[in-house]
Design a protein around this nucleic acid. Structure first.
Lengths: 211, 211
DNA sequence: GTTATCATATAACTATTGGTTACTTTATGA
DNA sequence: TCATAAAGTAACCAATAGTTATATGATAAC
């Protein structure tokens, strides 16, 4: 059955072409500023064709968001595999998030925006994205649990909750909107200082002080 | 000149009527789901009339956001006036934010969404909102500075940066999207536990441990 | 080799929206 | 009573997400 396989491959390839074209546009402009017609033009297809591959604009956007989440997941997994103390794993994951924000600022921006009220939870991709991002958070939670076990992380707060707090903090510190970055600069700080100092700020909220 | 004053009052009153109508709709549905035609219907005016009072939809939305920010500013000011130690002032402001999120969840939601990339920084209201929210943050920073002076808050991180970290954290913990709240509930926590534990989580990041 | 079938692709369309314009109504002030 | 300016409106425009009826072209069956 080589033929139907080839067709499957070609369909997948076309889907990827659409995603690539849409990604280029969504990376350069925000969601509302990119139209389906434009994306169709970019990939040299008719707009209606896009709807054969994606349910709607949200779903197309979400599929690109998923690409970003996969990359983050990969980074988190690598941190978890390191043979170090729990607190260090958490630190590594913080650094991984930072690194991700440097290497893929547009993916981060898109993930962040997808979390906003703009996107309905009815969208079928929302579950998948929630699950993907959730996987990252679970890896972080496991690291926190490991840290509690080896005594490097305070154990008076539930590891799930702690992982939520950290994920939300990382996300919102690192994916800060351009317009608010100006506030930081107006106070004489670079964005690098802003993020770097954050990690120093948050550390006592995690680490164990018993001894 | 009583007549022109009356006209001014009437114009202001109409503006308020429009804002009230728009608020009712924006409180019940999200930004994209509310149309200018609907708002016009709600306030029993022609759509074009709205544009006599507000530059565009963004500006109308922003004016409602400003209402919310004023309330928050008021709460923060009250906290600052209390004659307590710096760390307690900060705690009070955290509680004030929490209280605000309980009393005005829709204002909080709107403020939060206004911070997203959906809204251009070109909008004239963005500056005003930034300034208003900035005022809240400055009050918090002053409280942090007071805490550093009286030795209750760690002084190895810049008070401006600390105030930024806290404001961002408060905002994003408290204005969590419904779809992500489900994750918390799925783990067996209520949203109240989630927020309450956050304050316990973050405290060591602020307080001084020198003695 | 011809024809039926099915997936892929498209041109043309619809409905809705934010925003504008040209015109009308209404109140004021001389 | 009439000119003027403000407030309000109906009708319109342009752009956009999404749909439909139709065409194309490769494959499988005869």
């Amino acid at each position: 059955m080589g033929i139907s396989e080839r067709r499957q491959r070609e369909k997948e390839k076309r889907r990827t072409e659409i995603l690539d074209a849409a990604e280029r546009l969504f990376f350069s402009r925000n969601y509302e500023a990119v139209s389906m017609d434009e994306i169709a033009q970019e990939v040299e297809l008719n707009k209606a064709t896009l709807y054969l591959y994606f349910k709607n604009k949200e779903a197309l956007y979400a599929s690109i968001v998923l690409r970003g989440i996969e990359i983050l997941k990969e980074k988190y997994s690598e941190c978890m595999e390191k043979d170090v103390l729990g607190i260090e794993k958490v630190t590594l994951m913080g650094q991984a998030y930072y690194q991700f924000s440097k290497e893929h600022p547009d993916y981060l921006r898109m993930i962040h925006f997808y979390g906003s009220e703009r996107f309905s939870k009815e969208n079928p991709c929302t579950a998948e994205i929630g699950q993907g991002y959730g996987t990252c958070r679970q890896i972080l939670r496991d690291a926190i649990q490991a840290g509690m076990n080896d005594g490097t992380i305070r154990s008076d707060i539930d590891p799930f909750l702690t992982s939520m707090y950290l994920m939300i903090s990382f996300m919102n510190i690192l994916s800060m909107e351009e317009k608010w970055k100006l506030v930081i600069e107006a106070e004489g700080f670079t964005f690098e200082q802003f993020t770097h100092e954050f990690f120093r700020f948050i550390t006592p909220a995690i680490s164990c002080n018993n001894q």
